[in-house]
Amino acid sequence: MLAVSKSISRIGYRFGCKILPLLPKWPGEVAFIKLLNTQLSEELEDGLFDFLDEQILEVTVTDLGIRLRVSKRGDQFVRAPAGVPADSTISANSADFLAIASGREDPDTLFFQRRLSLGGQTEIGLTVKNRLDALDRSRIPQWAQRGLELIAAELAAVVAN
């Protein structure tokens, strides 16, 4: 597991840095939004993400040049229309996003250190952070959690070098 995650993160990271910024649109956006809709269906039904209704949140992974633009309509996250400016923006590099996702680092800590930045309506960004923090992590399978942690640790090292 360790060796696998090491090479995935190293090779994947180098490759991603080269290729992804050249693409006009991140090809994973559709798949990612689909994944959000299935993983967060309960929360969506409970109205926990209603604050994103007709709002555009833009998440930028700085080193990979990935830009994810998400909005919400009805009970679903949807891709935000192109050309419309975002209401709220969050950006950081991939290692830091993974560190947050895997529970290694606290977003406020990264924010103090200027590794995570917020723009536009701060309340949207803050609420997103709080909602994600409150998600029940036990729903993510153990192996996936562990993999996420390993890749996050490895990527932190790769980026630091």
């Binding site: 947050i100 529970g103 290694r104 606290d106 977003p107 406020d108 923090d133």
Partner: peptide, 10 residues
């Protein structure tokens, strides 16, 4: 209380 579980744990 405004911080993430990662902060609380540490």
């Amino acid at each position: 209380r405004q911080r993430s579980p990662a902060y609380v744990a540490q």
